[in-house]
């Protein structure tokens, strides 16, 4: 039986693994991949120690640190966490693990607009990964939906590639980091559409346009690409039957990252912590190991 099973290979899970390894805990790190959504960020400029670093490079550095500590992640998908007599059973697509404590750091996945045309034109102009697909839209007109951090990062990347960019925000103003907003509002190829919602994505084989409503008035905008960068869905399904979630399906945690269940902890984007930031997830990943270490000590 492990003392701890960490679920998730993003900054929260990796930081927890680093701290657990240094405390010589008997633990396993289970992840679908390493880096999580961090790997998708084109430029990170708010992680201390790096003026600018790509998500890909930061992820590589995370991996090297794990390698040095001889942490070998199990690349499996967690299907369910069950309560057991002396702790928990973590069931994956390949195995089953017993653990005294579990840390859920499974992050979140991209949100969908749920409008007509979105499914049909997925990867045919509709994309959820600007970092991956932006170069395919060279000299094309594109729309970005959402003006939080991911939307603004997509805009910054596409400013160097696309011909014209519509930044669509349903609220009255841009939401993300003010420094990023300032760079974007000054760029002549970017048109900012606030109070605007996407109602439909148009196109036969590939995207040819979007229908938006601005202040309730419908309008058709011809674009060849649409980058959907809206709110995320937490990956909390496999513990939803166990722990208390809020209405956004985020796991509710206390100041020590403890959930409503003894021995079960959570950090990062899967939780109700409102700051969905790499550095916040990493910080909580460190903090939680102390809490888990104390909890295990009290059980002995």
């Amino acid at each position: 039986m492990y003392e701890l099973v960490i679920i998730g290979g993003g900054p929260g899970g990796i930081t927890a693994a680093i701290y657990a390894a240094r405390k010589k805990m008997n633990f396993a790190l289970i992840a679908k991949d390493l880096g999580g959504r961090t790997g998708l960020v084109p430029e990170i400029q708010n992680y201390p120690g790096f003026q600018t670093i790509s998500g890909l490079e930061l992820t590589d550095r995370f991996k090297h640190q794990l390698d040095e500590l001889k942490v070998v992640p199990k690349f499996e998908e967690v299907l369910k966490v069950e309560k057991a007599k002396d702790g928990f059973v973590v069931k994956t697509d390949k195995n089953s693990y017993e653990a005294m404590t579990v840390l859920v750091a499974s992050g979140a996945r991209h949100g969908k607009l749920n409008v007509p045309g979105e499914e049909k034109l997925n990867n045919k102009g509709v994309t959820y990964c600007a970092t991956c697909d932006a170069p395919l839209f060279a000299d094309k007109d594109v729309a970005i939906v959402g003006s939080g951090g991911p939307g603004l990062n997509a805009a910054l990347m596409l400013m160097r590639i696309a011909k014209k960019i519509y930044l669509v925000e349903r609220g009255p103003e841009l939401r993300g980091d003010k420094m990023l907003c300032e760079k974007i509002v000054c760029e002549p190829k970017v048109t900012i559409l606030t109070n605007t919602r996407v109602k439909e994505i148009l196109g036969e084989k590939f995207v040819s346009g979007i229908v938006v409503t601005k202040d309730g008035t419908p309008e058709e905008i011809p674009v060849q690409g649409i980058f959907i960068e809206i709110s995320y869905t937490p990956n909390s399904e496999f513990v939803a039957h166990l722990v208390k979630l809020n209405k956004r399906y985020e796991i509710i945690i206390d100041d020590n990252c403890k959930t409503s269940v003894d021995g079960l902890y959570a950090v990062g984007d899967v939780t109700n912590v409102p700051q969905k930031q790499i550095v916040v997830a990493a910080g909580d990943g460190a903090k939680v190991i102390w809490a888990i270490f104390d909890y295990l000590h009290r059980q002995k």
Binding site: G39, G55, L56, C132, P135, L136
Partner: peptide, 30 residues
Amino acid sequence: TPTCPYCNMAKHYFKDNKVEYEEKNVAADR
């Protein structure tokens, strides 16, 4: 594309399994 993490994972997978591959960078060549 050079910035795509999934492309990187795929290339790592090929390397780990000793599979030779040819890479075509679509960002550099339309």
